[in-house]
Write a protein that binds this DNA or RNA. Structure first.
Lengths: 206, 206
DNA sequence: TGTACATCAGTGAACGCGCGTTCACTGATGTAC
DNA sequence: TGTACATCAGTGAACGCGCGTTCACTGATGTAC
């Protein structure tokens, strides 16, 4: 800490990832360039190759770190909602949106950069950890329903994921010309609320 | 029709748009290049400038044509569901997904290319026509509810739009590594069903 | 503590490439008389 | 019907640029004795 910035950078690897995240947020996943990331880190483009196999690899690392934070946030949200299964599920939904809003660069690297979640085991593991939390929360909520009208937990978690993702993409940022009719948080909150009522989990005249 | 392909192409403008749509689907919105589109149309890159102001303009035209088809599809779906307001709304939701699946190139140009819906009046008009249909359908459905528990139509249509868009983005194509747990159509159908039940529009034990 | 040396993390120049865009041009088409 | 000419829709060469990547190199750091 506090290293003099000389010939050796000291923490170039992470500095490149950080720069990439900012650039990805600003220019989009394909507008991002290795050269610019290197410049932002105060280094020659060639130096990048000391730490990453190439452009793709750098993006993948940005995504991996994003999933790490994401998974932690989901876990934390889940824990806060306990012991009420319903509150836990609602909290993971909110956490999804909060993550997308707070870490837009990571979010884009994860979901819009076109990198495959299966490109390496480390990436796929942490991604599954994050999405697994949501599925677990959904599963516990389902347990409250009579078996006959109990939809699969994977389906419910997919619904909530899709709704949250749609809200992020369409209304979450200053989308091109589509100014949001409602604050994204309210939109997701109300959407999930109506959905859960539809499952028979919330009183009809709550 | 049946023009000999000589020095003059005959219908280069549309040929370029068609090529762009295919390329955008294949390479993504930013991977798409003017040069490649020109080559696909059998023409020099410079020829593009006889018909479009530049790269952006070509993408915008692809998006505009997409919105045109999209709006027609929504109108048609809406009409088929009539006079039942509920059936009409469900049909527009299905039509959204069907459009995304059938015209992936258009869809990407419209929603992922970063072009603003407000870049020119023609584009914004046709976009509003499409989304207006969904909003109208939602409004009519809402009319069946007692005023006290009637959410705004814009909100309901935003919910359905977000859910449909999320399903498309996450499960609609061979997304990177995220193989869908369920067919997208089923996922959207069930999601909308549960949501509408939550609004009190479908019997709880239907 | 001082010196020799290995290792490491950068540099800087160069590469081949494809991009979007411009320009003066030319071949094909359409029209007036 | 035939000719002269204007208009139009292409060509092809050139531009400047920034990209990802490679390579031999060199300066800084860490370690053994």
């Amino acid at each position: 800490m506090g290293k003099k910035r000389g010939y050796h950078h000291g923490n170039l690897r992470q500095a490149l990832v950080d720069a990439a995240i900012v650039l990805i947020e600003e220019k989009g996943p394909t507008g991002f360039t290795l050269t610019e990331a290197a410049k932002a880190a105060g280094v020659t483009p060639a130096a990048v190759y000391r730490h990453f196999a190439g452009r793709e690899d750098l993006i993948a690392e940005a995504a991996r770190q994003g999933f790490e934070v994401f998974a932690d946030l989901m876990d934390h949200a889940y824990g806060k909602g306990q012991p009420s299964a319903l509150a836990a599920l609602e909290a993971t939904g909110r956490a999804y949106l909060a993550f997308a809003r707070k870490f837009p660069g990571h979010y884009v690297a994860m979901f819009e950069s076109g990198i495959s979640i299966n490109r390496d085991p480390e990436l796929s593991m942490v991604a599954n950890r994050a999405l697994g939390t949501m599925e677990k929360a959904a599963g516990e909520v389902m347990a409250a329903l009579p078996v006959a009208q109990r939809p699969p937990a994977r389906m419910v978690s997919a619904h909530i994921w899709a709704l949250a993702h749609g809200v992020v993409e369409l209304f979450g940022r200053g989308a091109p010309g589509t100014r949001s009719p409602f604050p994204p948080e309210d939109l997701l909150e109300s959407g999930i609320g109506i959905y859960l009522r539809g499952l028979g989990l919330i009183a009809q005249d709550g």
